[in-house]
Design a protein around this nucleic acid. Structure first.
Length: 505
DNA sequence: AAAAAAT
């Protein structure tokens, strides 16, 4: 069981973070450090290499962002010159934007010298070169970027990597995976050998850690509470259902009618399917957006922005949006197609249940997906009921999905859909007050008010030597949002109790 | 075999 701590986590001020940063964080409602942040700060400030692991939505961005900003502005031997001193590499463009914005907020009051503000810039593809090049020419202290554009601008001579003091790989296991590894190696070649490297992710497979150690200096592996287990949250209720591919959209439509449903993310395995599902749900009247790699960059950003601000309440995406994206009030994650591996599953459902909130994850498993699903289920110890057992040829199979709703019932009934016209005029925008519809960032996974979750006491810190090594529409009834949440009491809870023991990697 | 990431 989770140890009960009577003391709240320490504040950033208590942890010795400089006042400019403390003030900026406070303006965003952040005062207390999450476990991963508290554990990371002393080592990160000392310049140590480290691998930071904490569950999704538990504040990894500021775990590297805060010490990074503190350190490069406090090093009197190396004043900031406008040549990049810190580089954060991320796997997707949208995550790049998000991390960039977090760092901009946190650095609001920081000066590079007596006359110049500290500058952060985002370098990513799908957008014109000129503004990014101009920003670099004006002088930049911190760069956040995706690999392709970073290398491109480095090769063109616009991005100077020789002055880097700090390198961060966010979603590090993804960055060191086959698809990205060559790019990362190219970047590593261009940065000074004597630098601090910090790697963060909720998931860190052993082979990746072994690989990481080849370019790190005696890294400390910091694992915040919880990640030793399944790395999924016990605040997120998980379900798996057997589904015919052809029925999946109908099942999703019913899930989307769950009472108390807030924002919902639907993940697919392919770009085509993502678009198709988005289109079909749109036809059914849901306010839906799509994010995948076949869309133009502005369409991707527009969809995500609409989802953030509440104009859209269903977002269909490929795994491009599986990692890092931090949006408040995502109550449901639906795996329309099962993910590639357990890491992808962990990150997908990690879009809900963030910062101690509750969430519901539903995975729809087609016949040909059963073997892979059972592998994921086993690898994570989810112990969901075998979806095969829910198999039936009955057309009424999905009448009861058995997913608890806020009202205490189950969803799955067609809910008047039979006599309902496929499409109704949408309610005017003004119908709900804008503020009520606005979905906020959770600010790096940190609750905007109250104490963050996490008990540092339960954290397992191990040094590199000691333990070796080890982140609606109207066609359907409008869901009631923001009701008081009732804890679902049936079906399978994932994960081990977030705590000390049972820590088999 | 898929997605992502430079054009």
């Amino acid at each position: 069981m989770t140890p009960v701590t009577t003391h709240p986590n320490p504040t950033f001020a208590q942890l010795g973070v400089r006042d400019e940063i403390v003030r900026a964080l406070a303006e965003n409602g952040i005062e207390h450090a999450f476990a991963i942040q508290e554990l990371t700060l002393p080592l990160a400030l000392a310049g140590d290499d480290l691998i930071g692991q904490a569950r999704t939505g538990m504040g990894k961005t500021f775990a590297f962002g805060v010490p990074l900003l503190h350190r490069i502005t406090t090093d009197t031997e190396r004043p900031l010159t406008g040549i990049p001193r810190a580089l954060v590499v991320v796997p997707t463009r949208e995550l790049c934007i998000q991390v960039y914005e977090d760092l901009v907020h946190a650095s609001k009051y920081l000066m590079a010298d007596d006359t110049r503000k500290l500058t952060v810039t985002a370098i990513y593809g799908g957008r014109p070169y000129e503004p990014q090049i101009e920003a670099l020419q004006k002088g930049v202290d911190v760069v956040v970027g995706t690999p392709g554009r970073l290398l491109d601008l480095a090769q063109q001579g616009h991005l100077q990597l020789g002055g880097l003091n700090v390198l961060v790989l966010d979603e590090a296991d993804e960055m060191l995976d086959l698809g990205f590894l060559p790019d990362i190696e190219r970047i590593l070649k261009q940065i000074p050998a004597k630098r601090q490297a910090m790697l963060f992710s909720a998931t860190m497979p052993d082979p990746i850690i072994t690989l990481a150690r080849t370019f790190m200096t005696q890294p400390t592996h910091i694992r915040a509470e919880g990640v030793q287990g399944s790395a999924t949250h016990d605040t997120t209720e998980q379900f798996a259902y057997r589904a015919h591919a052809l029925d999946k959209v109908e099942m999703v439509a019913r899930i989307l009618q769950a009472e108390g449903r807030g924002a919902t993310m639907i993940f697919t395995r392919t770009k085509r399917t993502a678009q198709k599902v988005a289109d079909e749900l749109g036809e059914r009247g849901f306010r839906v957006g799509a994010v995948h790699g076949d869309l133009g960059q502005s369409a991707r950003e527009k969809a995500l922005k609409g989802f953030r601000n509440g104009d859209v309440d269903v977002l269909v995406a490929t795994d491009v949006a599986a990692r890092g994206i931090d949006i408040d009030d995502i109550t449901h994650v639906i795996n329309f197609q099962i993910p590639e591996d357990e890491q992808a599953y962990v990150h997908r459902i990690g879009r809900t249940g963030r910062a101690g909130k509750t969430g519901i994850a539903v995975t729809l498993v087609d016949w040909d997906e059963l073997p892979r699903w059972s592998m994921i289920d086993k690898a994570l110890g989810l112990d969901t009921p075998d979806p095969a057992e829910t198999y039936s040829n009955s057309p009424h199979l999905y009448d009861e999905l058995n997913i608890p709703t806020e009202a205490g019932g189950s969803i799955g009934k067609p809910a008047r859909s039979a006599d309902k016209p496929k499409r109704e005029p949408r309610e005017p925008r003004a119908e709900r007050p804008a503020r009520d519809r606005t979905r906020r960032r959770t600010r790096g996974g940190q609750s905007v008010s109250g104490h963050p979750e996490g008990t540092p006491d339960a954290a397992d810190t191990s040094s590199s030597e000691a333990s070796d090594s080890d982140s609606a529409g109207d066609g359907a009834p409008r869901p009631a949002r923001r009701r008081r949440r009732r804890r679902p009491n049936k079906a399978s809870t994932a994960g081990t109790a977030a705590g000390t023991s049972a820590g088999t990697n």
